[in-house]
Every structure is written in structure tokens, then in C-alpha cells.
């Protein structure tokens, strides 16, 4: 995680100096901008925001980097103060970061560069925190993805050399395991299983030897096959049973490479041995199922 809090506090304390500067510069600014600055100074961000929205739409002030800069600050503070729902908070953060970006674009003399950079850093960190909440508390994978992509976008803007590989692995692994768990807890709801599968496959694209992603993906495929069998009514006719068995078999077979990979990487991984026993048993390969059962038992005896 990028640590931005230190720089952000320096900027926050320096913000008052900026307001003084703007007050001196104020003759050429509209009264509205001055008023908004005053409101920001007294932390009345909710009142300042409508004024600043007008300021950035006003031909006289819309090309002034200070207008956008103050707007970014006001929205960021409002985001921090907000006790509203997460969608409202994201909207506040979106406006803050876009205002900071636009201020940088207009700010040819880099007058506000440090502050704007700090706002963007702060927004990136906030997006990352929001994506965790959205994923693990709200279980909203789409909004979580959106926040994660924004975190990456703004981090990349500030640090073009930043290597996202570890972050991506961490994010997709958490997404995969969260939704795999939801899949089980929600009576093997396919929708959750598919989200988990997509996320875990992304982890393996980045890190093919990732033990947790391999084992979870293997188990997910197994569970999807088992669910097909489990959901069948007892009076399903034999031709239909054959079709369902065929589909379940494909899923059981798909589970094997992931479990075998874990076993190859860690032959003493009890979960891999147990899962391999289960998958081979479902495929009615008793010889292989027994092989892994014995290996699992031997491991238990060793301990």
C-alpha cells in the first residue's frame, strides 16, 4: 500500500497558506470563489461545494487552476466527513480527483502541483479502502472492481513505474475466495461461483503457482460438478441423468489439474490430498482415489 498520509498532512496544513494567497489574488476572482474559500476555511464543505460547482462553470473562473484545486479539496473533505451511503461517497471522491487532475492540466506554473498530487494520492488510497469494503462487506464485486481500477489508474498517474502484480494478486485472490465462500453459503448459487472462478483464474494468470488460488479453483470446479448431481431430482429419467453425469464429469475433470498442481508444489498439502481423493472418487477412479486417501492418512499418522 502506498503511504500518503504524511505528505497529505503537510498539504492540509499548507492549505491555509494557499487560501491567504488566494485572498491576496482575490481581486480578479469572483466573490463566489472567495466565499467558497471562506466556507472551506471554516470546514463548511457542504455549503462551499454548490458555490464551487458554479465557479468551475463560470467563464471567468473555469480556466483558473485554483478554482478546480479548491473544488478538489472541498470534495475530498466532504468525502471524509460523509456518513452517507457508499455510492454517494464514491461520487464525492470522483469529483475531487477529477478536479485535481483538471487543476494540474491548467496549472502551467505548477503553483498547486504538490497539493493536487496529494489529493490524488489520497483519493487513490481511499478508492483502495472502498474496494475492500465493497468486496468484503457489501459483496458488490462490480463496484469493487470499479474502485480497484480507479485506485490503479490514479496510482499509475503518480507512479508510472509502480508494479501492480502483487496488488492484483491480493485483490483477485480475496475476490475469488470471498465469492467461493458465498457460493457455498448460498446453496451453490452459480452466479457467485462464476465470479469466484473469473477472479481465481486472474490470480493464476499472474502467479500460476499460487497455492490458494489453485486449490480454491480446483474445489470450485468440483463443487460445481457435485452441485449438478445434488440438484437432480430422484425421478429424473435415465437419458437426462446421462447428460447431467456427462456435464458433472467435465467439471470434476477440470478440477484435477489445479489440485495436482498444488500436490506437485506441496506433496504434504492435506487439502490437496483430500480434494484429489474426492475428485477421483467422483470420477469413479477408485484406484486413484485410494492412492490419495492413503497418502492423506500417512500424513496424518506422521503428525
Amino acid at each position: 500500500m502506498i503511504n500518503i498520509s504524511k505528505s497529505y498532512h503537510c498539504v492540509k496544513s499548507g492549505f491555509c497558506c494557499l487560501l491567504v494567497f488566494l485572498c491576496l489574488y482575490g481581486k480578479s476572482q469572483t466573490n463566489l470563489l472567495m466565499e467558497a474559500q471562506e466556507l472551506c476555511n471554516t470546514k463548511q464543505f457542504d455549503k462551499a461545494i454548490p458555490m464551487l460547482d458554479k465557479v468551475v462553470a463560470n467563464p471567468e473562473t473555469k480556466n483558473d487552476p485554483a478554482s478546480w484545486h479548491i473544488r478538489s479539496y472541498a470534495y475530498l473533505q466532504s468525502f471524509k466527513q460523509s456518513t452517507g451511503n457508499i455510492t454517494t461517497k464514491i461520487k464525492l471522491l470522483d469529483v475531487s480527483v477529477k478536479s485535481a487532475e483538471y487543476s494540474i492540466l491548467l496549472d502551467k506554473e505548477n503553483t498547486y502541483k504538490d497539493n493536487n498530487t496529494a489529493f490524488i494520492k489520497n483519493a487513490a488510497t481511499s478508492y483502495y479502502k472502498l474496494c475492500i469494503v465493497l468486496l468484503q462487506d457489501s459483496l458488490d464485486d462490480k463496484k469493487s472492481d470499479t474502485c480497484y481500477f480507479k485506485y490503479k489508474k490514479y496510482t499509475f498517474l503518480l507512479y508510472p513505474e509502480f508494479n501492480f502484480k502483487e496488488k492484483d494478486i491480493e485483490y483477485y485472490k480475496a475476490k475469488g475466495s470471498t465469492f467461493a465462500d458465498l457460493y457455498v453459503k448460498n446453496n451453490f448459487n452459480q452466479k457467485y461461483g462464476d465470479v469466484a472462478k473469473g477472479a481465481l483464474l486472474k490470480v493464476l494468470e499472474l502467479d500460476p503457482k499460487n497455492i490458494a488460488a489453485n486449490i480454491n479453483l480446483g474445489i470450485l470446479y468440483y463443487n460445481q460438478g457435485a452441485t449438478l448431481m445434488r440438484m437432480m431430482d430422484y425421478d429424473v429419467d435415465l437419458s437426462q441423468l446421462d447428460v447431467i453425469q456427462e456435464n458433472a464429469k467435465k467439471l470434476f475433470k477440470q478440477s484435477l489439474p489445479f489440485m495436482i498442481k498444488v500436490y506437485e508444489l506441496d506433496p504434504k498439502n492435506k487439502k490437496a490430498l483430500e480434494s484429489l481423493q474426492g475428485s477421483y472418487s467422483a470420477l469413479m477412479d477408485e484406484e486413484k482415489a485410494n492412492e490419495f486417501k492413503q497418502k492423506k492418512e500417512a500424513l496424518t499418522e506422521q503428525k
Partner: peptide, 25 residues
């Protein structure tokens, strides 16, 4: 993030379910 881990459906044997369906048929 916290990563969870999960298991195969523990109390269900797909082969036995298949055999029960056959027997009912």
C-alpha cells in the same frame, strides 16, 4: 483483504446420488 478458504461439499457423494436415481428409475 482477508482471504478465505473453502472445501468440497463435505456431506454429499455424487456417485451415491447417481446410484439412488438409477435405483428409483
Amino acid at each position: 483483504f482477508s482471504s478465505l478458504s473453502f472445501r468440497q461439499q463435505p456431506t454429499f457423494d455424487p456417485v451415491s446420488k447417481g446410484k439412488a436415481i438409477f435405483i428409483y428409475n
